[in-house]
Design a binder for these strands. Structure first.
Lengths: 345, 345
DNA sequence: AGATTTTATGAAAACATTTGCATTACTATT
DNA sequence: AATAGTAATGCAAATGTTTTCATAAAATCT
């Protein structure tokens, strides 16, 4: 009975019950210092009694910020991004924003479609993974002048703000480590690189080092596999049934590395005694594996948190609307985590 | 120059450019069949030229659906939920909805706060994990009459719609399998169960079976550990340094199981020769492990997808607004996946 | 005590849409 | 050829807020 029949009370109901005008109610939410504490109390009571919940849509429509941030990722259910999504989410949540999320399965056209959808919802900002996006995506971003940040990759000349690391360096580091350990017979297991600049950068870096060393792997030692334990395990199986087996395997990321290790174990081969395995990413759990995975450490948690905070900053900067925020570029350091899956030969 | 100075065109601009009324423009979006194809073409061209993007906030405000669904989970960066989030996301995306997501870190008060925030955004529906929620949460849900679904657990007498499995059964199955294999010296590694009915159900089921067999583990064989490889590995270490070592370990989920396996490997103990390890959940990758993990299979992908589709159904049902949708309860089957980490003794 | 500033409130316009009702122009029916 | 029915469109009210401006009341200054 204290509730309106519909169950949904609006600001007018609150005003009526508190015997003040709607302006005062609105003010008591948005600029509490401008309204008499006693009045505020009355309003507070009315809100309680009616179970009133503010309608953000109405505020949004009025031209204010919507209080939402959109995050577009290739996939959610993947160790790579889960950590970065979590820390990004925490950071924007902490600043009072609500997160809209969607995945596109590495399809840049779907990415564009999702972006449009987010824009229809008038997100205050958008975060994307990597710097590889379709031209329409860039144009839309530009035209709508929405604050945008790219997570995971760093490029000094990126078209949009970014926070992340140089995947090219990661690829180099990984290959160099293997080479320093004396390996020359190195196989490569990477995902498809179109529309995936992280993988492309890593592979490019690794190949360059190997080329300099005259250790470029033959065709049959270059395996393609998605970021997925099962498929990686399956895909690289043939590798070890070959007459000449590589002494080390450099993997596109830790998930692939895990698949490779399982494939080796399954064949009764020992890591690192028979074959060394190198990952990239240093996902949660890679350190705890037995033997612990040698990999290139990416500070995923830090990258996600930084990206979230910088996103909020970009949004604050771009106030008033239409003021274009300046670009921010943050380079995060990566480093070799030499553990137990690679040995010198 | 074809763009409005602000960069943002509205429906009025489109109408003007297409030389029709705003009503017609609106209609051509929402009820295209009611407008002349030729007119629709004109409007389409105007939209293109102006780079117009519809404002969902305005539609929302008008009382229609917002086109958003809120998903509240304990954590995102965890193998347990990542898969279910992904499939739920895909399902609602497919139906044209946009997903709002937030995590609460197993804190039911934060869950309540997040729910409020989502309701401010006028989500068309809310999905929660499990059936353990604070009383204010249930009341708010009730009072706002928002379609809601619980994911992961099934209870015949749940207060809200649910799709999932019986965690109690999972716990029983796991314990029964171990008992059938002849194990009596069984250790338990589970997370804190307050506010986590999944863990509570599993533990309860397992304990009951063990009690019936007079195989209830002593205090020092009951370990507490969060869902986290590193902490599980660390936490159960002491277990194997004890004078009398258990012959099997039953874990709260597969992540914990993996931690336990690594702890064993680290001590030079073999799985399953020295100790059997049982997981619950059957996460992505558990099948590929070497040795492959014996676990209770939860159809996470199916649960998430079903939940997403049923959420959309509930929303459709609750049209017109204020019509309360009926409860839906779907029980998903779980089964033992006996693989290689448990052996008979 | 009168003038000036400050504090607290209200009225009404604005925001970008949707939709019920009214209107006009066709097409089909007798 | 008049009538009824249908298709396509426009007008204007409604949606739930925020905010500018105006006004009234109270506090401060001289």
């Amino acid at each position: 009975m204290s509730l309106k029949q519909g169950g949904k009370a609006d600001i007018v109901d609150v005003a009526r019950r508190a015997r003040v005008s709607i302006s005062t109610v609105s003010r008591s939410f948005n600029h509490p210092d401008l309204v008499n504490p006693a009045t505020r109390k009355k309003i507070e009571r009315a809100v309680q009694a009616l179970g009133y919940i503010r309608n953000r849509a109405a505020q949004t429509m009025h031209g204010r910020r919507s209080g939402t941030i959109g995050l577009i990722v290739p996939t959610i259910d993947n160790a790579i991004f889960a950590e970065v999504i979590q820390s990004f989410s925490d950071a924007v949540d902490h600043a009072g924003f609500t997160l809209l999320i969607a995945s596109h399965g590495f399809d840049l056209d779907r990415e564009y479609a999702v972006l449009r959808k987010f824009l229809e919802h008038r997100v205050d900002g958008v975060a994307l993974i990597g710097l590889d996006h379709s031209e329409p995506t860039f144009q839309l971003l530009d035209q709508q002048a929405v604050p945008v940040i790219s997570i995971w990759n760093y490029e000094a000349d990126s078209r949009i703000s970014c926070v992340g690391a140089k995947n090219y360096d990661a690829g180099r580091m990984a290959a160099e480590h293997l080479v320093e350990l004396g390996h020359r017979r190195i196989a490569l297991v990477f995902p498809v690189t179109i529309g995936n600049d992280r993988a492309r950068g890593r592979l490019g870096g690794a190949v360059e080092v190997l080329q300099d060393q005259g250790a470029l792997p033959p065709e049959e030692w270059t395996i393609q596999s998605p970021y997925n334990i099962a498929e990686a395990k399956e895909a690289c199986g043939a590798l070890f049934d070959l007459p000449e087996c590589p002494s080390a395997v450099l993997c596109g990321n830790d998930v692939i590395a895990q698949g490779v290790i399982y494939a080796l174990l399954k064949r009764g081969l020992k890591v690192p005694e028979d074959v060394s395995v190198m990952g990239i990413g240093d996902f949660k759990g890679s350190k705890e594996m037995e033997p612990a995975l040698t990999t290139i450490h990416f500070p995923a948690h830090e990258i996600g948190g930084l990206a979230g905070r910088e996103m909020c900053q970009l949004i604050a900067q771009s106030e008033p609307p239409n003021k274009v925020a300046s670009l921010i570029r943050t380079k995060c350091d990566i480093r070799l985590s030499a553990r137990a899956t690679c040995r010198a030969v």
